[in-house]
Write a protein that binds this DNA or RNA. Structure first.
Lengths: 226, 226
DNA sequence: ACCTGAACACCGTTCAAGT
DNA sequence: ACCTGAACACCGTTCAAGT
């Protein structure tokens, strides 16, 4: 029959070989950045690509394998500073900062990267560089590993935190004002610091990078022991 | 007809008022701790409670409202040290540590707590206490707020990281050995630090609390500037 | 008021079929 | 080999109905 389907899309059979892993990954990243993790659906992805839902399965075993590949591709974007000179502390800060930038630019990458083990070459290169820098900053073997993990933990946490408060600011209007109102309405006897610092607290929402720099700087200082 | 259903459960109509918000929350936490976030389903929850799927909807508007309530209940478990004396740095460490413990004991709470804005009185009390301690440690108004956020970010990140690697250790056998093998197999010329520190790196998986203490100690030191 | 099942619009994925 | 639609077992939720 030629009766039109419920209008989903007037797509006819697409020429063969229009799809390949790269095109799929591009579309996946686009979809993820534009609509977020919960909209990252095999069906939505196929729609984005203008193909049938099952077409993607010819190139990836399933959503899990696809998600792994997306994480890989995003990690490959992290640019490592090649400059071999300079204060180790500064260079550490640089590498970690570029990781944080990745998470900020691709908020949904975060969930992908934190919800699955970090395999892959890109991750390996970053790790090796950081460990080397920490060692050359004078840390012992175990200490360097601990410091590396602490840096990763802080970065992931900062990114999760930032992403969440940014999402909130986008969704609701005038969040800062509302927070301030709620804080100043609290009983000062029970919550003296909270009411006192209401102005500073309500401003914290939209200062992701500044906040990250602050914490990272202090953490590096604490880790390197000066 | 009296033909048995496909055996889902031989449940008959349950007496009224067997359900209440508290019982539901208990079951939700149990389910979450036992089977994880992805198994936390309205249908599974109903099964756990021995009621029909829709029974829960008489007490919560939907899964979102229920999830909020679960997050609330878990936060209420955080015990705040009431001791009003002692080094501010130590007391800060104590509060943050108890937050981390909450996340460790209820891994799935983490996703709940990070995926939605922290509203609720429990969160407020923790925040006020930390801000007060940071101020009494000599930090300025803005600095105290920044330090508070940095501490939260580190805690969330550490919890996410720990949870993930623990899940991985549970799922797969002998992860440490496998990681070590993979690391020592890498070309030492390209990744000198990684291959050199293979023993320390492969041991990092199962030392959550120790690692957390290390990073937290250094972060606090950096934040308080000594 | 509280609990029920059927039904709806989603999801990932299997499978047999088209080209 | 690559792409297709139908179908299956899930999901959250609406709705009319039972008690």
């Amino acid at each position: 029959m030629t009766t039109a389907r419920p209008a989903r899309s007037p797509r006819r059979r697409v020429p063969r070989n229009t799809l390949n892993p790269d095109r799929i990954l591009d579309a996946a990243v686009t979809l993820l950045d534009r609509d977020g993790t919960e909209a990252f659906t095999m069906r939505a992805l196929a729609e984005e690509l203008g193909v049938g839902t099952m077409a993607v399965y010819s190139h990836f075993r399933g959503k899990d394998e696809l998600s792994d590949a997306v994480a890989q591709r995003l990690l490959a974007e992290v640019e490592l500073p090649v400059t071999g000179v300079g204060d180790p502390g500064d260079r550490i800060t640089e590498v970690v900062r570029s990781l944080y930038r990745l998470f900020s630019e691709h908020p949904s990458a975060l969930q992908l990267l934190t919800s699955r083990p970090m395999r892959g070459d890109e991750q390996i290169a970053v790790t090796d560089q950081l460990l080397g820098l920490l060692r050359s900053a004078g840390l012992g073997r175990t200490e360097a590993v601990r410091a590396y993990v602490a840096l990763m933990q802080y970065t992931v946490g900062a990114a999760v935190w930032t992403t969440r408060s940014r999402r909130r600011c986008e969704r609701e209007e005038g969040v800062g004002e509302r927070i301030k109102k709620r804080l100043t309405a609290l009983p000062p006897d029970s919550y003296p610091s909270l009411t006192d610092l209401a102005p500073e607290l309500s401003a914290v929402g939209n200062m992701g990078p500044v906040q990250f720099e602050y914490g990272l700087g202090r953490l590096v200082r604490g880790l390197l022991g000066r």
